[in-house]
Computed example of a mutant assay.
Amino acid sequence: MSEELLAAVGRYTARQAGESPFATAIEGFTILRSEREKRTSHMILKPALCVVVQGAKWTSFGERRFEYRAGQALVVSVEMPAFGRVTEASPTEPFLGLVMEFDLAIMREVLQGLETPPARGGRLGHGVFVTHFDGALADCVLRAVRLLDTPQAIGMLYPSIMREVCYWLLTGPQGGAVARMTLAGNHAHRVINAVHVLRARFAEPVRVEELAAIAQLSPSAFHRHFKSLTSMTPLQYQKQLRLLEARRLMVTNAANVESAAFEVGYESPSQFSREYTRMFGTPPRRDVAALRLAAA
Rank of each mutant, 00 (worst) to 15 (best):
G10C: 13
L249P: 07
A8W: 02
S268D: 02
K239D: 12
M107W: 11
A136V: 03
P151Q: 15
K227D: 07
P151L: 14
E67P: 04
A254G: 03
I44C: 08
Q54P: 00
E258I: 09
L147F: 04
M80D: 10
P284R: 01
H196C: 03
P283H: 05
A255L: 10
V191G: 02
G71M: 11
A290I: 05
I106F: 05
L293S: 03
F202A: 10
E4F: 02
L229T: 14
Y167G: 01
E63Y: 12
C140F: 00
T282Q: 07
A23K: 11
M162C: 08
I106K: 08
P159G: 04
N256I: 01
F95V: 03
L6A: 09
R36C: 04
R143G: 12
S41Y: 10
F66C: 11
G176L: 14
F226L: 06
G113P: 00
V145I: 07
R39D: 14
F262A: 06
K38R: 13
V165M: 09
R274K: 11
V288N: 03
M181D: 07
S2I: 11
I154R: 05
A70I: 08
E27G: 05
A212C: 05
L183N: 09
Y68D: 07
A89H: 13
Q174D: 15
A82P: 05
A17R: 15
V52H: 07
E37T: 10
L32I: 13
S259N: 05
L32Q: 12
A144Y: 09
A25N: 11
F280I: 01
P205E: 07
Q271G: 04
K46H: 15
G175H: 03
S273N: 01
A261P: 01
L235M: 13
A296I: 09
S77E: 13
V99K: 15
V191L: 03
T87Y: 08
E164T: 01
A8G: 09
T230E: 05
L74R: 00
A203I: 05
P173W: 04
A200K: 14
L74Y: 04
G127L: 10
V9E: 15
S34W: 09
A7M: 06
V78P: 04
G28S: 11
A184L: 13
S77M: 14
K239M: 15
C166P: 06
S273T: 01
P219T: 12
G176M: 14
S268Y: 00
V208S: 07
T233V: 05
P234G: 03
L243E: 02
E164I: 00
R69A: 15
C166D: 11
A261H: 01
L148I: 01
F262I: 00
P118A: 09
P91D: 11
I106S: 13
V208P: 01
R15L: 12
L147I: 04
M279C: 02
E37A: 06
R248S: 00
L104R: 05
G113Y: 02
R242H: 04
E79F: 15
L45E: 13
S90I: 11
E63A: 15
S90Q: 12
P219A: 12
A17E: 15
A14I: 08
A105M: 08
F272V: 00
V264I: 07
V288C: 03
E210P: 02
T230L: 14
S160D: 12
V75A: 13
V197N: 05
L229Q: 13
R199P: 02
K239C: 12
R224E: 12
